[in-house]
Nucleic acid binder design. Structure first.
Lengths: 290, 290
DNA sequence: CGTTCGTTGTGATATTTTTTTCAGAAATTT
DNA sequence: AAATTTCTGAAAAAAATATCACAACGAACG
């Protein structure tokens, strides 16, 4: 019997492809807080996953159990074994991988980065930055460098949906001076600059500043020289066990900003999103059914 | 005392002296393998402890529960809370911001995503993916969609430094069929596809597969349809309190992959990096002093 | 455009589980 | 040692839970 080594979570994961839509939905709900939810009554589980009662019964049968009670019994056995076995202690992120595995080491580092970054961020400055970015009366210009232009573009793609008048400039391009020609003093520049800090980005920031624009800077813990002229600086920790830095924490900040800005003027954003949806529907770019 | 901080095991211990003989016997049986035994049916628990059924019912009432089901529900809640990693217990990540602040809510969600993602990832599959990507003899093609091309490019920019023969294709572009012309069966495609899944990406994957290429897929927890033909699928959780999804967890996986791949052939990567540094020095793109 | 297949949920039925009742056993007190 | 109180467990009643059969729905195919 090879069931001994396979947890029920594994079995669910493995069968995931053979399951139907509602069953998959249920499976994810079970894994969501495993194994607690599976130990409650069938009815509660079904309600929790927003599927019907028989769907649950059918799925556990597909998993190889005679019925829901047997499934629960197996779950309890597994729990009993796990508590007894000290090796099962949850000190690694990816179970099944040694603690020295890159997955665990890297995740450790990133979580640490997040903790440090959030601990030292000024919520008021962050809110102020969001308010500036959300202000439709100001033109918004998003600037990234050689690597960070990916982050810049990510922010740009979302801002484009939320509000009008957004531009994405890559500081490594030699076309950017053109963009600065008609910068007004109400404009807002969101600039990404992580080490190694780029000369082009600094120059661009200086010129924008000279024209009266507000500058919001995303940088790392050591701060780009741009921060001296930036109105608001948001710095994230980026150290990981790698030859490169991690922008995961910065992305977290960016995504949080997107979410905040979207909330600040949800009424109009909603309309824009629906409009966009309609246009995408016509392009058949996306699949109709998940 | 508030029950919030007291586990049920604690409550049983505390009440132990106030219990009768049969009840004490039962209590010890529950603590014997806690909490599994308490999550089974009342009848089984009674039999296990060699006490009668009503004894169980009476004891849980002495413990302050209305009935056995309520006792079980409390046990499940406790289990649910326990499974959550202690690191996720921070109610506020950004001190100085209320716990309801977007910074805290969003970070909570992302940490949760990371935890779930890492818990269900298969380290062997991940390692296999890294090995494929690291193999210099295979050409590497990185594919992204409307939003995910930012992730794709991030991976591309780093791979470009680490190894030769890397291409970045945007599936929304209509130029991609050209790239597939001379796909060989040793090629590796790294494909990003998160909801809403894109038809173009699926078609591209199918064509690549038909030409014999290996496919590594980065997707979300619900899995792009591409995963049916992918050799290796890496899925990340993406749910956050926002109208959009979060790719922060996926970025974590991507960065970890970069780091792993870099380690796999550090000897040659090192040379390439130094060479690149030299070239950058000449362009004066970066600042000399941090 | 209609047909067919697989999937899903509703309602009825059967089963299990929990609660209650009550009588006998054990312990304690007088 | 008898009376009283407290505890315990068997069995029945009540409640909930799980299973089953069937109809409705929606997607895929010709």
């Amino acid at each position: 019997m090879n069931d001994a080594t396979l947890t029920i979570a594994d079995r669910i994961q493995q069968k995931l492809d053979a399951l139907t839509r509602a069953e998959r939905q249920l499976a994810h709900s079970i894994l969501e807080n495993y194994p607690a939810s599976g130990l409650g009554p069938l009815t509660a589980l079904a309600k929790d996953a927003s599927v019907s009662v028989p769907t649950v019964a059918r799925m556990v049968q597909k998993l190889g159990f005679k019925g829901y009670p047997e499934f629960q019994a197996a779950l309890r056995e597994e729990l009993k074994a796990k508590v007894k076995n000290p090796i099962a202690k949850h000190d690694t992120w990816a179970e099944g991988a040694p603690s020295g595995h890159m997955l665990n080491r890297f995740t450790d580092a990133v979580i640490d980065n997040i903790r440090h970054t959030l601990a030292q961020i000024d919520p008021d400055a962050f809110d102020a930055a969001c308010a500036l970015v959300a202000d439709r009366d100001r033109r918004l210009c998003i600037v990234g460098g050689r690597i960070t232009h990916t982050l810049a573009e990510y922010l740009f793609l979302h801002m484009q949906v939320i509000r009008p008048n957004v531009t994405h400039i890559q500081s490594t391009s030699n076309a950017w001076p053109h963009y600065l020609l008609d910068t007004r003093d109400s404009d807002v520049f969101v600039i990404f600059d992580m080490r190694r800090y780029e000369n082009n980005t600094l120059r661009l920031a200086q010129m924008a500043k000279a024209q009266g624009a507000r500058i919001i800077l995303f940088t790392d813990q050591w701060r780009s020289p741009v921060h001296q002229i930036a109105d608001i600086s948001l710095s994230g920790r980026i150290v990981v066990p790698s030859a490169w830095d991690s922008v995961a924490t910065t992305l977290l900040l960016v995504e949080t900003m997107i979410s905040s800005v979207q909330n600040l003027n949800w009424d109009t954003t909603k309309d824009r999103m629906e409009e966009l949806e309609g246009m995408f529907d016509q392009t058949k770019l996306f699949r109709k059914f998940t």
